[in-house]
């Protein structure tokens, strides 16, 4: 007599696979109330995951755009004659981290200020002959983090002697925005973590109820000589199936609503869209949708097995 496993025949592995799948579907349908509860749970968690991710990547993207858009302005004293501007230009362009330097004449500065006002640009009209704005060089660095060093250099004696009176920089703005971004990342990570824990608890509970109602069945299976994995597979598949459906629905719903929400925000808060644009659906969903669906499937399967453990000790 042999009390040990023998090599399994391939055909029986296939047979078993069909049996597991059939059992999982039957069970999910039979316990439809529980299944619907679990699907809703996963749906909510997956939606939160997708929302958190979308918010985080959009904040990061907007920051990147803002950071590269806002440069440094080195303002030149009115007393510096035009002939010396070339010298200053060359000195700035020679700085290692500097990518571009543009001269902005006082008139150009005034015009762009008038543009930014949209309406009421007639306020500026009278100023053309008595321009309060000074000439400046607009300096763009390669990397936002180099700004501080460049600003320091431009404020140094060398440049002050040449006639740079003031250096205006976006550093403060970018630092603030970076702080916002880090905070948003942390909040999103916490939301994702908490919802993951919550969903494991909720799904485990739902499946535990399913399992408890099938305790007899499991005991009988074990008496007849079913291995633990044979007992587990249908439940595991049921959990995966439920998790997969919940997460897929969440991915579909958010893929449809995402552009609508982006549009609504852009309409409402046009100041954001003036400086930065949100990521399009095609750049967010090919990454997060598969992650959400796979997480849903794994979460469902793992919770199911977690719920089973107690009953396999027969």
């Amino acid at each position: 007599m042999n009390f040990f496993p023998t090599r399994r025949r391939f055909s029986s592995v296939i047979n078993n696979a069909f049996f597991y799948i059939a059992e999982a579907f039957k069970s999910a349908l039979k316990n439809s109330l529980m299944s619907v509860c679990s699907i809703i749970t996963i749906f909510i968690c997956a939606s939160l995951l997708i929302i958190s991710y979308s918010v985080a990547v959009n904040i990061r993207e907007c920051l990147r755009q803002i950071e590269s858009a806002v440069g440094i302005a080195a303002i030149i004293d009115d007393s510096v004659p035009d002939e010396e501007l070339d010298k200053i230009y060359n000195a700035i362009a020679d700085i290692d981290d500097v990518k571009e330097v543009h001269f902005v004449s006082a008139q150009a500065a005034l015009a762009s200020f008038a543009d930014s006002l949209e309406e009421g640009s007639d306020i500026v009209m009278g100023l053309e002959n008595d321009n309060p704005l000074r000439r400046s060089f607009e300096v763009v660095v390669y990397r936002a983090k180099d700004q501080k060093a460049v600003v320091k250099l431009l404020s140094s004696e060398t440049f002050v002697d040449m006639g740079v009176v003031k250096v205006r920089q976006a550093q403060d703005v970018t630092e603030f925005l970076e702080g916002v971004s880090n905070f948003a990342n942390i909040v999103c990570a916490v939301i994702i973590f908490v919802t993951a824990v919550l969903s494991v608890i909720l799904i485990t509970t739902t499946i535990k109820i399913t399992v408890a109602s099938r305790k007899n069945e499991i005991t009988i299976m074990k008496y007849v000589g079913a291995t633990d994995s044979f007992v587990k597979w249908p439940f595991r598949l049921e959990g995966a199936f439920i998790g997969g459906i919940g997460a897929t629905v969440a991915a579909a719903v958010s893929a449809i609503t995402y552009p609508l929400i982006v549009h609504a925000i852009s309409e409402q808060f046009s100041f954001i869209t003036n400086i930065a644009s949100f990521l399009p659906t095609e750049e967010v969903f090919p990454i997060i949708a598969p992650i959400a669906i796979i997480s849903g499937i794994l979460l469902g399967a793992l919770s199911a097995v977690g719920a089973l453990r107690k009953y396999l000790e027969v």
Partner: peptide, 15 residues
């Protein structure tokens, strides 16, 4: 017979 192999023992015994 280890815990893992108990099912194989039970397959030799009808109950």
């Amino acid at each position: 017979v280890s815990h893992k192999n108990v099912p194989y023992l039970r397959r030799q015994i009808g109950v």
